[in-house]
């Protein structure tokens, strides 16, 4: 292998260059979205990298621009926040609770429930869609926040992930806490949850992201304008705003940036959590 030392420097540079180019291609669509949302309307969808900028697209979102019809963008954003946060918090809380029982308590039916969670997780959910809609409608939750939140209040995946994680926590911790007189609820939230910070970050981000970008259910479960989530409103505006893509890019940016910022803030914990997750 004569000369391999000499090559390795060049090889390393090529590797980095390749990685950077590939990364740029992968994040380019986001860049395109953000730039287009600020771009002069004459340049939108006509250049790959707009050079002239204006706030017209954002202004249009709140005033309705030439159409004169304002759409409830801000309201929809708030709906998305309310629905996604409530759903995610419930999925996390129930996930921890159920997983704690499945991993650390001994009770009749534990094994059966544990196995059923796995079956449920891989069950094609599409088959349940129509009756789920009918149930929500029959109990009077159609077109309400609860109708959006309750069918997505439990995540099989969160239960599954937490169960696997909790099983790996040594029983001594729990017994020691019990000797100190801690209740199971206290053990769960004071010991188990703090120990699982990194995996909690992963689960939280995945659930939040999935709920935030949900389309099918949020479209079916709601009819009035005041109940639309941002994702659904954006989807509905494709037709009416067909010849004004600027505001759509602005709304897309508002939809996408919060989740990306959140992800970047938590990225360190996320990386740690993924490492466990993938073992």
């Amino acid at each position: 292998m004569v000369g391999s030392k000499r090559h390795s420097g060049a090889r390393r540079t090529i590797r980095y260059a390749l990685a950077i180019v590939l990364l740029l291609i992968m994040v380019y669509p986001y860049l395109y979205m953000v730039l287009s949302s600020f771009a002069d309307w004459a340049q939108i969808d006509k250049t790959l990298i707009p050079t002239k900028f204006t706030l017209r697209s954002y202004d249009w979102l709140f005033t309705g621009g030439d159409t004169g019809i304002t759409r409830p963008w801000l309201h929809a954003f708030m709906n998305s926040v309310i629905v996604s946060i409530s759903s995610t918090v419930l999925m996390m809380a129930f996930g921890v609770m159920v997983a704690y029982a499945l991993a650390k308590l001994n009770f009749f039916g534990r094994k059966a429930i544990d196995n059923f969670v796995l079956f449920h997780m891989f069950f094609p959910a599409i088959i349940l869609l129509i009756p789920t809609f009918l149930i929500i409608q029959r109990v009077g939750l159609y077109d309400t926040y609860f109708g959006l939140i309750l069918p997505k209040a439990v995540s099989l995946w969160a239960i599954f992930m937490y169960t696997n994680f909790f099983k790996a926590v040594p029983q001594v911790f729990i017994e020691a806490a019990r000797l100190d007189g801690a209740s199971d609820l206290k053990i769960m939230y004071r010991i188990m949850l703090p120990m699982s910070k990194s995996i909690t970050t992963v689960i939280f981000l995945f659930l939040l992201m999935e709920r935030w970008t949900e389309l099918l259910w949020d479209m079916i479960a709601v009819k009035s304008d005041s109940m639309l989530t941002l994702n659904v409103l954006l989807s509905q505006m494709f037709g009416p705003y067909g010849s004004f893509p600027g505001p759509l890019y602005a709304a897309s940016t508002i939809l996408t940036l919060p989740i990306i910022i959140m992800f970047v803030i938590f990225s360190k914990k996320f990386k740690e959590g993924m490492q466990f997750n993938l073992k």
């Binding site: 990364l23 986001y30 970008t213 893509p245 939809l255 996408t256 990225s267």
Partner: peptide
């Protein structure tokens, strides 16, 4: 790795809009 992961965070509606534009 974090950079390459970012597309996973996109909404299908948004990626459809971008692709439609492109």
């Amino acid at each position: 790795l974090i950079g390459f992961f970012l597309p996973y965070l996109s909404s299908g509606v948004v990626s459809a809009l971008i692709v439609k534009g492109l």
